[in-house]
């Protein structure tokens, strides 16, 4: 692989034209190889993450369900590892999807606000403020979610239940503790807002002035200009931004761990407690006390999470990369 970046310098002396290559010696060469090595190391680390997780998860993957039930706490009898992980995957996906549904419209609004609505002098400062949301440690989000947001949101959950209780998501009963997936989803949404906003903002700012002016000159209002010129241009960027946010929401641990009252059901009731649990929170909850095969089992569930987030992130990055090539060709 590395040969593609470093043509062998030995060829150079025979060809006077390529004499520039002869300087690639001594320190120069060493420095280059150190830099290349750092790049390769990063690839190696990512590969190592996958390999070591797989290696440590292996005993759990190959163990029988009796063996697992005997050594893993809360492991129900006569269930395969897949059946065991299933509800966790479900809970993870549900929480992340809800967070994404809440965060994406708001994030697009903020991105448009910063790129096209706010006074240009302010927009950089406003960008910093949104970025601060990303800097707040997740454990603090957890504290805030349980002590501030939970109690504040409870009347909203009750209202939702009394008016839209027929809708599966809002079915009763409403837990008076507010330690429910709906509260978790709101906290996760706040946490992923800055990620989605940052990417969407960049894309919206890249909209060619030419197209914006074309729309305005046709008699478009500002919103119509946004809809005609900015949003179509930024669509793929917004999609990948949302996927990056999804990736972050899938892997978030502490906020879920601290707020959610866990359960292991395939349940859509997001206003009731003891219904769902996410993979990350489950691992963090049980890992400190786990030993033996239980550790392997937890690592195996972690591997599942790794694969899911990897797929989502790679998808998002592939969209971004394709978009780059597309706009580069124009």
């Amino acid at each position: 692989m590395t040969t593609t970046v470093s043509p062998p310098p030995e060829r150079a002396p025979g060809r006077p034209r390529r004499r520039g290559r002869t300087t690639d010696r001594g320190f120069n060469r060493a420095f280059r190889w150190i830099a290349v090595g750092a790049g390769v190391l990063i690839l190696a680390v990512l590969a190592a993450v996958a390999v070591f997780l797989l290696q440590q998860a292996w005993p759990a993957l190959t163990a029988g369900s009796d063996e697992l039930a005997a050594s893993v706490p809360r492991y129900p009898d006569d269930t395969s590892l897949l059946e065991y992980v299933g509800p966790l995957v479900f809970g993870t996906l549900l929480a992340a999807a809800l967070a994404l549904a809440l965060a994406t419209p708001v994030a697009m609004g903020i991105a448009l606000f910063i790129s096209h609505y706010a006074p240009p002098r302010l927009s950089q400062v406003l960008g910093y403020l949104v970025d601060l949301l990303a800097a707040v440690p997740s454990v603090i989000y957890g504290l805030w979610g349980i002590f501030v947001l939970g109690p504040a949101a409870l009347p909203v959950w009750e209202w939702l239940n009394s008016w839209f209780g027929w809708f599966p998501l809002f079915a009763g009963p409403v837990s008076p503790t507010s330690r429910v997936l709906a509260t978790v989803a709101v906290v996760l949404a706040v946490m992923i807002l800055p990620i989605i906003t940052a990417v969407a903002r960049e894309v919206f700012l890249q909209t060619p002035k030419l197209h914006e002016e074309a729309a305005l000159a046709l008699g478009a209002t500002r919103w119509e200009m946004v809809r005609t010129a900015v949003l179509p241009f930024g669509r793929s960027g917004v999609i990948s931004a949302a996927m990056l946010g999804l990736g972050r929401a899938l892997g978030e641990t502490m906020a879920v761990l601290m707020i959610l009252s866990p359960g292991f059901l395939y349940s859509f009731k997001i206003l009731d407690s003891s219904q769902q649990q996410t993979i990350a929170a489950y691992i963090a909850l049980d890992f400190p006390e786990a030993s033996g095969l239980a550790v392997n089992t937890l690592i195996a569930t972690g591997l599942v999470l790794f694969v899911i987030t990897l797929a989502v992130n790679m998808g998002a990055r592939a969209i971004v990369a394709r978009r780059k090539e597309f706009s580069g060709a124009n």
């Binding site: 197209h211 000159a217 046709l218 008699g219 209002t221 179509p232 241009f233």
Partner: peptide, 20 residues
Amino acid sequence: VAVRRNVGMVFQRPNPFPTM
């Protein structure tokens, strides 16, 4: 907005909407 609808404009560089 109404002014721009009544006074059309053609720009220096052609700018059709690329996604349409």
